[in-house]
Simulated scan of single mutants.
Amino acid sequence: MAVNWEDAYRTYEDASAANIADTSRAVAMAWRALGADTTLPWWLTAAVLSAAEAFEHQADTWSERQCRHDEQLGTGARSRVDGDCQCSRLFLLLDPPVADIA
C-alpha cells in the first residue's frame, strides 16, 4: 500500500499540465487505499481522507481546465457527456503541450 502511494507521488512530481488530472486522481486513490486501513486512529483516517478529497478536487479542476482549453482550440480531444468533461484515450497518448492553461 505504501509503495503504491510512493509511486503515485513520484509520478505526480514529474507530471506535466497535460496529465496532472490523471496523476492527481492516482494520488487520491492511493490516499483512499491508505484510509481504508481500519487499524488507523480516527484522526489519522480523517487526515488521509481529507488529502484524498483535496487531490480529487484538484483532478476535477484540472480536467475541467483542460476540457475548456480543448474546446477553445477545437481539438475535440475531450468532450462533454451530461455536462462532465470526458477525455479520449487518443488525447492521453498524444500528450500535447498545454502550458497556456491558466
Rank of each mutant, 00 (worst) to 15 (best):
His69Pro: 01
Ser50Trp: 08
Cys67Gln: 00
Pro97Trp: 13
Val98Ser: 02
Leu93Trp: 11
Phe91Cys: 05
Ser79Ile: 15
Asp14Thr: 14
Leu92Pro: 02
Ala46Asn: 15
Cys67Asn: 00
Asp84Pro: 01
Ala28Phe: 04
Arg89Gly: 06
Ala99Gly: 13
Ile101Leu: 04
Asp14Met: 14
Arg32Ala: 11
Arg32Glu: 11
Ser88Gln: 03
Asp82Gln: 08
Leu49His: 14
Ala51Leu: 11
Ile20Phe: 03
Gly74Thr: 02
Ala28Glu: 05
Leu34Ala: 13
Asp84Val: 09
Val3Ala: 12
Phe91Val: 08
Thr38Arg: 14
Asp95Val: 11
Arg89Thr: 10
Ala99Glu: 11
Thr23Cys: 02
Ala52Ser: 07
Val48Gln: 00
Thr75Leu: 00
Ser63Gln: 10
Ala28Asn: 06
Gln86Gly: 06
Ala46Leu: 15
Glu71Ser: 08
Asp100Thr: 07
Ala99Thr: 14
Ala36Val: 13
Ala15Pro: 02
Ala99Tyr: 10
Leu49Gly: 12
Val3Pro: 05
Ala46Trp: 12
Ala30Met: 07
Pro96Asn: 02
Leu44Asn: 14
His69Tyr: 05
Ala18Gly: 06
Cys85His: 01
Tyr9Asn: 12
Glu64Gly: 00
Leu49Glu: 15
Tyr12Lys: 10
Ala77Arg: 04
Ser16Lys: 10
Ala46Ser: 15
Asp37Gly: 07
Cys85Asn: 00
Gly35Tyr: 06
Asp37Ala: 09
Thr75His: 01
Ala33Cys: 12
His57Ile: 14
Trp5Pro: 04
His69Cys: 01
Leu93Thr: 13
Glu64Phe: 00
Gly35Cys: 06
Leu92Ala: 10
Ala8Ile: 07
Trp62Asn: 07
Trp43Lys: 15
Ala54Thr: 13
Glu56Trp: 04
Ala46Cys: 15
His57Leu: 13
His69Leu: 03
Ala30Gln: 05
Leu90Met: 12
Ala51Pro: 06
Arg65Thr: 05
Ala51Thr: 13
Trp43Met: 15
Gly76Thr: 08
Phe91Thr: 04
Gln58Val: 11
Gly83Asp: 01
Leu44Phe: 13
Met29Asn: 15
Thr61His: 08
Glu64Met: 02
Asp95Gln: 12
Cys87Thr: 14
Ala36Trp: 10
Ala2Cys: 14
Arg25Gly: 08
Glu13Trp: 11
Ser50Pro: 05
Cys85Asp: 01
Val98Phe: 00
Glu71Cys: 07
Pro97Val: 14
Arg65Gly: 05
Asp60Val: 03
Ala21Thr: 08
Gln66Trp: 03
Arg65Gln: 10
Thr39Val: 11
Cys87Asp: 12
Gly35Asp: 04
Tyr12Glu: 07
Ala18Pro: 00
Trp31Cys: 09
Trp31His: 10
Ala15Met: 06
Ala15Phe: 04
Phe55Val: 08
Phe55Gly: 02
Gln72Cys: 09
Ala46Gln: 15
His69Asp: 03
Ala51Trp: 08
Met1Lys: 11
Arg65Cys: 03
Ala30Gly: 06
Ala28Met: 09
Trp43Asn: 15
Trp5Asn: 10
Val98Gln: 03
Trp42His: 15
Ala59Cys: 04
Arg80Tyr: 00
Glu13His: 12
Ala52Asp: 04
